[in-house]
Design a protein around this nucleic acid. Structure first.
Lengths: 196, 196
DNA sequence: ATTGTAATTAGACATTCTTCTAACTATTTA
DNA sequence: TAAATAGTTAGAAGAATGTCTAATTACAAT
């Protein structure tokens, strides 16, 4: 997936290869002609053509002892569609663990026995911890203050402080009838798509 | 022109930078988060973000001692338009001397005193020479065989051979009333555009 | 004020890439 | 058949790139 995109951009990330594509976009050329126009050695042209051929952008046809090179317009269209479509950029992250940072922060503050060591100072990390902890409350259920503190007390020795933080950061809501869990929110900035 | 296209493709010709673009296409991230998700050092992330910022693809906003990075969607659209439009590829050749090969062949076979040394064996080169020589005849004018040979004789000691070649390769046409110059043709394969 | 954190920069090291020359193959022409 | 030509491949040298560590800057919290 990302390897294909990478091959595509790498293939075009060179001035002589870009020039070759530009030339072949207008007409066919032999290797000798390309070498002369670009002022480089035939061997170098061969190398660049091979790289362009790797992604199917260029094809060769034999003509006597000449090779005549042509741009594959079909393939160019396909490649542009594949790697520059609205989803293409997002799919570049397919193999990544998007939760890696959150998990790292959780491991840092919550011990293996599930005890919170300390409420993080930085708002960033605090939110990650709170978003995790609030999952101990069931959504849609209303809790008394005592119930909340009992639940929080199982993972931290100052449940009141934890409760206040959860309220401050809107992970927990209260009214005269008690507390309930708010909707989960992202830890980072709001997401948005490339093409709206 | 080509430098801009080159910067664009080079900026995206790296796996970690592609991943960063993919991540930022979905939401904002801090450098620390990117480093964790990509499993690389913050310094390396900084370096890649700087390269993406060079072409305006990424912008940073300060938030405390964090920098929050965002993809510039506007800029991405502009870049795609600029470098992948129908003309973009053709304009990559703007600074090239497209006649370099023809000129080299001409220099090889025609001496400074404008005398043709020899008719090239290879069809390729022969055509280039003939296309050049036929310009000694005015388009639209009808010549007798004697007139043709007199003109060709000024640059080559066997005008008859030259005349036959010009006819063979269709640079010259004849009927019962005489000879006339054919339309000029390209030396290489037929040109075609990318998007028809 | 001091300490801690995120980010950047400089510099070093290793890897990748570009280009060349030289050797070799395939094809054509004398 | 021998010589000439276009192209490819292998290998080497130099340039560019990616990544790291260490030092530095900017900001924030105790």
């Amino acid at each position: 997936m990302i390897d294909d995109a990478l091959s595509f951009f790498k293939a075009l990330a060179n001035d002589n290869r870009l020039k070759i594509v530009g030339l072949l976009a207008q007409q066919e050329y032999t290797g000798e002609e390309l070498a002369t126009i670009l002022s480089i050695q035939p061997a170098t042209v061969s190398h660049h053509l091979a790289r362009l051929a790797e992604i199917g952008l260029v094809s060769a046809r034999a003509d006597g002892y000449y090779s005549v090179y042509a741009l594959s317009v079909e393939r160019l269209r396909t490649l542009l569609d594949e790697h520059l479509s609205s989803d293409a950029f997002i799919q570049l992250t397919n193999d990544l663990d998007l939760q890696a940072y959150e998990n790292q922060v959780l491991r840092e503050y919550i011990r293996p026995d599930n005890q919170l060591q300390k409420i993080p100072n930085q708002i960033n990390r605090r939110k990650i911890i709170l978003a995790h902890i609030v999952r101990d409350l069931k959504p849609g259920v209303r809790y008394s203050e005592g119930q909340v503190d009992r639940i929080l007390g199982k993972i931290y020795d100052d449940p009141k402080a934890l409760r206040v933080e959860l309220l401050d950061q809107k992970f927990l809501t209260r009214d005269e009838d008690g507390y309930w869990r708010g909707k989960l929110q992202r830890s980072s900035g709001a997401g948005y798509g490339i093409w709206d």
